[in-house]
Write a protein that binds this DNA or RNA. Structure first.
Length: 255
DNA sequence: ATGGCTTGAGTGTCAAGA
């Protein structure tokens, strides 16, 4: 089974690229973040014409998440149970035998910001919720934009980024707590090129100079980890005209 | 140098992203 995650930074703008990518890679499931459109404007017909079902939770202008799948998703739920949040950042569903969680973590803006405090409380709520989800699903994968670069090797210039949002110790600690629930960072199960990133700033030719961060991740529970045969970042869509600033992450699991 | 691009909103120019 092929599963993938992609922050598209506006599904309206990126729809043709998403359709191209689906046709080329034929994933069993694709988790999307930052749709930036309300549900009434979700391009359901175009997705279905491409051979995919869609479960989505959107809002105007900001956030918004979706799970596209070749077979219909079931048991669809939105949000983090017990965490009241108007921001549409989580959608979960069963696809085949696997429970998928599509997540878009808050950016946090800067460590001094109220948005940073919201990010940390959101991550804490995610952690305690996923602990309960792990107990209820034998095969659980959490895919998405975590807005956290877990280690210095996930940062193009660790010195320049030290203490900043996306790499600060409290954020990395929150990511570590997720892993310690019993997940693997599937990308690190395999040998990977140095300076592998999933996001590059639009400004200053960030992609061409590979000034990036690895902030999009596929986390797998133990059962899925043992059957994972690959995880890679697809750089190709980042070279498109009008690209998203994020690249897709693709995982291969036996499920 | 706290900028730089891109998007959505809305039709000026700003908020937000990362």
């Amino acid at each position: 089974m092929r599963i993938a995650s992609w922050n598209v930074n506006s599904l309206k703008v990126r729809l043709p690229q998403v359709l191209d990518w689906l046709a080329k890679h034929q994933p069993d499931a694709l988790c999307l973040q930052e749709l930036k459109l309300e549900d009434a404007k979700f391009p359901q017909a175009a997705i279905e014409a491409a051979g995919y079902f869609a479960a989505y939770s959107g809002q105007k202008t900001y956030n918004g998440v979706a799970i596209l799948s070749r077979t219909p998703a079931t048991n669809i739920t939105c949000g983090i149970a017990g965490f009241d949040d108007p921001q549409r950042r989580i959608i979960s569903a069963d696809v085949g035998s696997v429970r998928l969680v599509c997540a878009y973590a808050p950016n946090g803006q800067s460590p001094e910001s109220d948005k940073y405090r919201y990010k940390l409380s959101w991550l804490a709520a995610l952690c305690s919720w996923l602990e309960r989800e792990l107990a209820q699903h034998s095969q659980l994968a959490v895919l998405g934009d975590y807005n956290i670069a877990p280690e210095d090797r996930d940062v193009h210039d660790p010195k320049a980024w030290e203490g900043k949002v996306l790499v600060s110790p409290p954020e990395r600690e929150a990511f570590r707590r997720l892993i310690e629930l019993g997940f693997s960072d599937s990308f690190r199960l395999f040998e990977q090129p140095e300076k592998s990133f999933t996001w590059w700033d639009y400004r200053m030719n960030g992609f061409k100079r590979n000034l990036g961060l690895r902030i999009d991740h596929i986390l797998l529970n133990a059962a899925l980890t043992s059957g994972c045969t690959g995880c890679c970042i697809d750089l190709e869509p980042r070279r498109n005209e009008r690209p998203s600033d994020h690249a897709p992450v693709v995982g291969e699991i036996s499920a």
